[in-house]
Every structure is written in C-alpha cells, then in structure tokens.
Design a protein around this nucleic acid. Structure first.
Lengths: 224, 224, 224, 224
DNA sequence: AATGAATGAGGGTTCATTCAT
DNA sequence: AATGAATGAACCCTCATTCAT
C-alpha cells in the first residue's frame, strides 16, 4: 500500500504490459472455443491479443500451456461464485434451487466463461490432465452444492424421495448443453431461435422439474 | 466347377472393395470423435481401417470430404429410425414420449452414432455446411416429432398447457448432453459414475419431467 | 513373307494387341510434349491410349523407359528419310538446299515428330543419355548432310566462301525453333499468327539466306 | 550515441531479408531452367538460396507463384533494355540492326536471363497465364522494335521490299533458339562446339541475312 | 494379356517454436 | 520486453509402381 517510490510511472506502456497475459488468455479462449485447440494457430491468438507471435512465448511456454492456463483461470473464478450464495438463503428449497441455478447460469451464459464447457468437452480426450482438474474443481463441488439442496428438500418433506444425483443431472445438464450449444450450432446463422432466449427457457425448465419434484401436498394424500 | 448361376464373382478382392468405405467411415468416426477433426491424422484413420494412407484417397477426395461423409451417413440412418416408431402408438402421450425417447436413445447411446453429436458440436464452426445439414435433417424433424406428441397431450388435456418448444428441449437436451459426455469426460477414467448408467437416468429424467408436465388429476374440479 | 500357318486369326483382338505399344508411344509423346515428362501422369498416358494403368507396365518397365522408347522410335524413323533425298539431285546447290530442307521440314512440322524437338530440349538435362543419342543419331548426320551441300556450293563457286557450320545453323535453327514453338507458345491461343503459316515462312527464310549466300555473278566483280 | 540522422538501421538481419527474394528468384530460375518446373523440388530451391524450406514460403505463396515471379522479373528487366538502344542510332538500318541485335543478344546470352526463354517454352502449356504475359510484354514490343527498323530500311530503299514479319523471325528465331540450346543440349558435354561460340555465330548470321536483304547497289540500273 | 485396387515413398505446404536484433 | 524472420518437423495429398485376380 505504500506508494511505490518510482513516479507515477505506471505508464500506459506498463499498464499494457501487465494486461498482456489476460489479453492473451481472452484471445486464446475465444479462438479455442470457436475453432478448437488444434485448428487454432498461435499467430491468430497473438494477432487477436494485439501482440506479435513471439510475445506469446514470453508468457506461455507452449500452446498447450496456454490452453491449460485458459481453462484453469476461468474455472478457478467460477468455483468461489457458486459457493457463496448457498447457505444463507431463506425460504423453500425449490426457491433456493431456482435462485441459485438461474443466477449462476445468467452469470455464465452471457460471459466468455460459457465457452469453457465446450472447450473442455472438445479437448479432454487429448489432454487428460484437464479431466482430473475439471472433476475436482467443478463437477464435484457443483454436485455437492446442488445435491445438498435437493437432499435438504427431501429431508424436509418438500420434495419427493428421489434419486438425488439424477435430479442434479436433470437440472444441470440442459444448462451445460445450452452453453455448449451457444458456441457451436447456436453461433451459426438461424439455428433454433428457441435456444436463443436461454434465460427464459432455463427458468421454465427448472420450474417444470420442480413440478415433478415437489411432494404432493400432504392433505389427505389421495393418490396411491 | 459346377456353375452356380448367380455370379459368385464377389471375389475377396471385390468384397474388400465393397467394404472399404464403411470401414473407413467407422475408423474416421471414432477418431474424429475422440480427438477432433484437426487433431486426427489421415494415416491414423487409414491404419485403423486396416489400409494404407493412399487407399483412403481412393474413396474420399480429402479429409474434409471424409468428415462430411461420416456425418451424413450416420445422420441419414438416424432420421428414418426415429420417424418410424412414432404414430402407430396406442396409449397416453406420456407413455408414448417415454417409449419413443427412451427407445431411440438406447439405440443411440450404445452405438457409435452417439459420437456424431460431439463431432457436430465440435466442428460446425469450422465447417458451416454441417450446420445447415444438421438443422435440416435432424433438428427440425426431431423437434416436430417430439413437439407433436407434446402438443397432442396438451390438446387432450393430458398435459398442462406449457411452452411446447421448451418442453422438447427440457426432454432432449440432457440426452444429447449425455451422448456428448460419453465421448469426452465420460471416456476419462473415473469421472462421474452416475452418468455411466445412462439408461436408468434418462428414464428417471423423463418421468420427472412428465411429473411436472401432467395435468393435475381432475378428480374434484373437472375444469374443461 | 510366307503366310503364317495360323489361320486368319489375326483377330481384331490380336491386332489391337499388336498395336498397343504404338498407341502407348503416341499417347506418351503427345502428353510428354504438351506437359513435360515430370508433369505427365502415367494414368493419363494409359487413358489416352485406351488401356488401364497396369497395362502400360506390361510394355514398358517404367515411365523413364517409356520416355526413351518414345524418343528413340521417332528419331530412328527420321534418320533415314533425310539421307535418301540427297545425292541424286540434279541442279544447283541452292535449289537442292531449298528442296531438301523444305521437304524434310514439311514432313516434320505437320506430324507428331515435330514435338520430339521440344521434348528433347526439355528433358536432356534430366536424362543425359538422350543428349548422346540425339547428337549421334540426329545432329551429326544432319549437319553432315546440309553442310555437305553448302560446301559443294562453295567448291563450285555457286556460294561465297563462308563458314559452313554457321550457315547450317542459320538455315536449320529457325526450323527447329518453329517446331518447338508449335508445341509451346504456338499452341496457346492467338499468339503470333505469322508463325502459324510456317510453310511459307521457311521458304522465305531459305531464299533470304540463299540471297546472302550466293556468290555475286562473277562478271566484273565490282565489290571490293 | 551520436545520432546519425539517416537510420543506419539496415542491420544484417534486415539486409538479409531484403536480399532473400532475389536470392530465391535466382535459385529458382537456375533450377527451373535446368530441370523444369515440375521436376524441381522446393527444398532444392531453398537449399540453393541458402535458406530452409519454410523460408521460401515467407516470400512466395506457392511454387507456382514463385515461377511467375521468376518470369515476370526477368522479362520486365529486359523490356526496358531493348527499347532504350533503339531510336537514337545514326547510320544505316543494316548497321542499326546489327548493332541493336548483337548487343541485346550478348547481354542476354551471357546472363541468367537466357534461361527464361527455355523456361517459357517448357512451361506455357501448363501455365497459360505465362503465354499472355509473354506475348504482351516481350513478343509484341520486340517485333515492333525490329520490324520498325526493317520497315524503315525498306522505305529508304536500303532493303529490298520483303515481308517484314518474316525477316524479323529469320533474324530473331536463331537467337532465341541458341538461348534455349545453351540450357539444354548445350549444357551437355561435348555437343556441337559451333554453338558454343555464339557471339561470333550471331554476327555472321545477321550479316548473312543482311546480304540477302540489301537492295542491289543501284550503280548501273538506278531503279526507282 | 489385362485390370484396377492397393501401396508407400515423396513432395508441397503449414505452423509451433526459437532466437538474433 | 517485444519483434518477426527463420526453422524444420509433421501433415495432407499424389502418383509411380506392384500384384492378386
């Protein structure tokens, strides 16, 4: 916090220098997502980041390292976000699910992060490290989060006693699928306008599922 | 020497030639799905098909033509399958959906065809022709099929009046997502065993959705 | 000359068989001349000769052997032709030159043989054997032929005493050049229509040269 | 630190870059002329230019572009040369022809440019663009140049009234032929030593033709 | 004798990576 | 730190040649 003795020399030159890695990561992410890792040329990445080809190698030792940096950075920033909103929620589990999922999803779908899912899907088989990383950092905490809420709903009698893991998938897979879709078929002209209003769809989807999930109001329980 | 009337002239030479295209398509599909188009080398495809590199080019003019042939063939064979099972079904629309979807899906998920979805997702951006082809041949007929059943259910009062397109997506997207998953993260060791019992999951998923979809049993208040 | 004992079984099948080598040579000559040896594919040669690719190798051990056969055959047939017309000619050496050269040249320019010059020019550097063969079979006898007539003209006082070798080149090089031209630029559309009336040009050319060659009529010899 | 005003920034790095295109063109010319376009490998060109295979493609987009650049550059430099020496000549048209032709030709025959004629002859059929280019840039201006002098000679009564186009060919074709010869048979061992003294031959050739071209000296019968 | 499917070495071209400036 | 020229391994594709039929 002590002001650095050098003058206000955080010149635009230096500021740019500090931003280079992020600019490169952004450029790489968008290109990797669009064309795939193998079909993306390093010159393109450098060009989109506004630097020369050689500069890329000052920051990342190889194209593969760049890929891993892209994924690691985006996923790390997502882990925290979901976890916060969880526990301090009041109200029914149904509402909580609706709230948490739709908020998280709205954050993701409109940002570059949505592409990471496509990127992972596309590249895991070629870079197995990614699988392990993704399972540990994203899949597991995410499932625990959502699964925990579902389980709580069952315990409270709010939900019917169903397979928790299955419900989580029913909830989440379409969301992931839409992220992927956005960066593949959805990016092509005039394909399936429904999926182009994803905010609305996801809300409907969750409510539809909650409809099947909620325990029948235990008045007289006439249904066998 | 006894002349067999029909020309047994399908010599082993000719028989091999007749089978080559399919062998190459199968090899190409599995490799393209596994590694992506750009990361697959033509020698690998040839080797997996048991022929030499040059032979591939006797049947397909280029790597890109091979890709298009792979997709076209697999999709063409799927178009017919779905359409058949449709109309001559008796019983409730809910049962019909459960039946048609789970049967189609079991056919797909256990065959090589499941990979085509990943392949399309991965490559459309690089080969825009594919988007058009896929939209015309798969997405549209598929949506009409499922959407038609849902609409019929609503008309009959079996289902609540919901957004048809949205329901179709809620039903289908997880299935497509599981196909994709099978060939990416699912192919990596020890990731998410839940998704490794996909038959059961999809049945649960459909029933869960049907639960949210069915009109409340009109016992007390038979609203028209 | 004794009729072969086999019946008239020189069926069209056999006749074709006997003609195969020549058909292949003709096809090869025209393609080699048009595109050059390296740029000609063996399939093209076979196709133009109306046989399959494999058949070519029944007659010629390799593409290179085919080239040599093409050249050898065409040149051999030219050697004899020129030599005959020479000695038994009556009249002036000028007339003889005009006669021999224009007749030989008319035979050559309108037949496929004209292409051989281009072929040799194009390929000697890659196949040095050809140089030796050509020098021995064509250049040397040809020069002796024409040079002999020129020398005789000088000896008789019909021609001025000039460098014989040079005159031969002055006479012959344009003819060779026109053969080459016919198969390169001359085969392209609308190039230099003059050269497209080569019969007339060559006659003019020879007469022009003879005009410079003839000794001034030895009346008073006023020129120093 | 003393600032030299003009940037001596032509570092050896940059200097090399500036010279690369010419080095590559020279290497390509000599190889294309020697072996033909199709039989020349790009690595050979690169190696002869002292660079690696990849470097070639930094300067020329393809082997074919390299060919066209080779031809265009050499021809462009020849166009100007001939045109300059023309008009400001004093003396007879015969002297002018002798002077212009032999000077131009001596420039060409001893430089690499002589090979371009063989190259064009060899490759036009495969690359029709070249024909058009050559006709427009070389043949037409050249014929106008020489033909103009001949016509002037006729108009002045210095030459007999002959076919101008034909004379131009009689003059020029042997020169072109010798250029071609130099790079094909002439490059093989011990072939036709006459043509190996080309300077002398061409002078003789021109004078021989001029002998046939000149109007008879109007001493006794001054025909108008 | 004839075919044409199959081969695989070789050539043109690309592109990740290096390094002198 | 930044550049961009240079490299060369690797990839797609061709085509001369072989061989089972």
């Amino acid at each position: 916090m002590t002001p650095s003795p050098e003058p206000t020399s955080t010149t635009s030159h230096q500021r740019r220098k500090a931003e280079r890695p992020q600019e490169l990561l952004d450029a790489a992410l968008s290109l990797f997502v669009e064309k795939g890792f193998a079909a993306t040329r390093t010159d393109e990445v450098a060009a989109r980041a506004g630097v020369s080809k050689g500069t890329l190698y000052l920051y990342y030792a190889s194209k593969e390292e760049l890929l891993k940096a892209v994924i690691a950075q985006r996923l790390s920033s997502q882990i925290a976000e979901g976890a916060r909103q969880v526990a301090e929620h009041e109200g029914s589990c149904g509402d909580l699910l609706l709230e948490v999922l739709s908020r998280w999803w709205e954050d993701v779908i409109d940002s570059d992060a949505s592409g990471v899912f496509k990127l992972i899907i596309t590249e895991v088989r070629n870079f197995p490290d990614i699988a392990e990383f993704y399972a540990r950092e994203v899949v597991e905490p995410g499932q625990n989060l959502i699964g925990g809420v579902v389980q709580r709903g069952i315990d409270r009698g709010e939900f019917r006693p169903v397979d928790v893991g299955g419900v989580v998938h029913s909830l989440v897979l379409p969301m992931v699928m839409l992220c992927i879709h956005k960066h593949s078929l959805g990016a092509c002209s005039a394909v399936d306008p429904l999926v182009q209003a994803p905010h609305q769809f996801i809300r409907q989807h969750i409510e539809l599922l909650l409809g099947g999930l909620r325990a029948p109001v235990p008045t007289t329980s006439p249904t066998p």
